[in-house]
Structure formats: structure tokens, C-alpha cells
Design a protein around this nucleic acid. Structure first.
Lengths: 155, 155
DNA sequence: GCCGATTGTGATACCGTGTATCACTAGTGG
DNA sequence: CCACTAGTGATACACGGTATCACAATCGGC
């Protein structure tokens, strides 16, 4: 009766690996996170877990994000969305219109970023690359839309 | 007596170009922004302009950012810093330790991002690329430092 | 130059995201 | 099973930013 290790057991491992205790609230948060497909706000997680305090939800999200279990994408207005990092290192396609967040991977991009890191003075800790888009669904629904958000998007 | 066009005149042009009025408060904000070298918070601008209301400072910053006159960099914790976009399109080197923001340009990176944009489904509006670093000064001052911020930096 | 339509301003109140505090609770190692 | 420590949840607070709204400044037409 353990062909696939239960999610709770995996979460316990992750938490132990962080030197943190595996507690009920943390398991609840992690379980909910892992069950979700897209990216979501900390607040929405809190709303779905009435038994868990707001502070604990935020603390747990931070813990998991620092551990790399969650990743964070920023909407054009800067508000963060979290998603379970099922896959490995990736960047994001963020729809300015419907705010959905998709994963995006490019080996070539990673290679170049890595090369550039060598040219940058100081020590590079990491990078953040996000594409702001109109997703195909929104284009279909609304036709080409103007971007009316912070524009230092650049080109 | 107009060998170099005054900053106010240039700002007026920019504002007109946006279909906005050139007003005293906006000129004050723009003038202060243009005089600064690094990146700064909206709040700090407000503090330096006691005569101008907080809402007006934020509105003006938004206006100029949307116009591409200002650009926005995000510290590892997500808090925004604004800088006057003297140069052309660039990305940022953000020191996790002292929070200074430096411009960074790479033609090769732009080329690749542009290529990738063609492969991305939907319409790409723009991108955000930031490198999180320990700047040379901080490395000298403190020695290699651990990053203890949100870690979806990736690699 | 003045005048009215319109845009912008500033005070205030509010929202969203997140952290500090602190009395209390629940894991954990012996 | 106990004691020690880490975690929890309520509350209060901080910060960045927006909505509202009465009032002021701007600007185009005359």
C-alpha cells in the first residue's frame, strides 16, 4: 500500500530537508499548492484553508519558495503569484490580460544567461526572466489588446 | 539663451506627447527623477518633495513609467525601484545586499529574446530580465554573502 | 486677457501583500 | 512521558499603491 509515496510523505521529506518540522498546517498548505495547476496568490490559498492562519500561510509559502519548491512570478503590476515547481528551472509567460502564468523553458536562453553571468562584475546569484504576453485565448476572445500596464517591458 | 533645451521644456514635450498636461507638480517630480543617478522608491521621491502630494507622486511615476521615460526594477523581495531611463532598452543588475541597481545591456540577449518571442504562442508584449547579484563593493566589504531571499532565482 | 470645460491635485481612506509580536500549542529527542 | 524548541494564530502594523472627491490649475476659444 505504498506504490507511490504519498504527497504528505514527500512534503515531510522536503520540510525535514529544510531543517523544519512537518506540521499539520504546513502539510495542508503544501497539499493545496501541489494540487493546483496554475499560479495563485497567497491570499487565495489562505481563503481556501479556513483552519490555517494567515501568517502561517504566508510563512509556509515563503519557506517553500526559499526552498525552491514553489516559484514566484510577478504580474505586470508587480503582484506575486506562486506555483508549485513541478518541473525544473523555468521562466514565465504571463498574460497581461487574464493574468494566467505559464511555464517557459529554453536551453538556449539558459546557456546565454549563464555566459552573461561570467561577464557580469561581482557574483551572480540568479536571474528572473518573464515574458509579458497576450495569451492565445485572450487574443481570440478580445482581439489584439493594448497594454496599459507599466511599460518598461522594453522590447 | 537656449543652446540646450531646458529640462522643463523637454518634460513638457514628453507630457504633451502623452496627451497629458504639463503641470508644476509633474515637472517637479520629473526634474527630481532626472537628476538622480540610481534607482529609488516612489516613497523616497515623495519625501524629497514636501510640496507634492503622495498620490500625485505615485500617479506621475506611473505616467512616466508607462511612457517608458522611467523604468522599474524589482528587488529580490519584489519591492520596486524606479530610475530615469537615460539610455535605451536595458536590463538590471540588482545587488541583493545593498539594493543598488545597475543598468545592463547585451545585444546578444536582446536578439535571443526577440527570437524566442516568435516561438511563444500568443503575442509578446515585452519581457523583464533581471540579474540578482552581489555587487563587487559588497563582496569586498562583506565577503561572499548568502542569499536569504526568495530563491526562485534559478540559475 | 478672460472664461469655461476639462484635467490634475492633495487629503483621506482604503486595499493587498507581507512581517513583528507574543501568548499558546504541538513536534521531537531523550 | 516530559521538557525543550519550533511553529501557530490573532492582532497589529508596515509598505506600496489606488479610489474618491472637493478644490485648483491648465488650456483652447474668443
Amino acid at each position: 500500500m505504498m506504490a507511490t509515496k504519498s504527497l504528505d510523505a514527500r512534503v515531510d521529506e522536503i520540510l525535514k530537508g529544510l531543517g523544519s518540522r512537518a506540521t499539520g498546517p504546513r502539510r495542508k498548505v503544501a497539499r493545496l499548492l501541489a494540487s493546483k495547476r496554475g499560479a495563485f496568490s497567497a491570499e487565495s490559498i489562505h481563503e481556501e484553508l479556513p483552519g490555517v492562519g494567515r501568517a502561517t500561510v504566508y510563512r509556509t509559502i515563503r519557506l517553500l519558495a526559499e526552498a525552491g519548491v514553489l516559484c514566484r512570478a510577478l504580474l505586470p503590476d508587480g503582484s506575486p503569484r506562486y506555483s508549485f515547481d513541478h518541473s525544473w528551472h523555468h521562466h514565465h509567460l504571463i498574460c497581461s490580460s487574464c493574468e494566467t502564468v505559464e511555464a517557459f523553458r529554453s536551453a538556449e536562453l539558459e546557456r546565454l544567461l549563464c555566459e552573461l553571468s561570467d561577464e557580469i562584475p561581482g557574483r551572480v546569484l540568479g536571474h528572473q526572466v518573464d515574458f509579458y504576453v497576450n495569451c492565445p485565448d485572450c487574443l481570440k476572445r478580445e482581439g489584439p489588446v493594448e497594454a496599459h500596464t507599466i511599460a518598461n517591458y522594453g522590447g
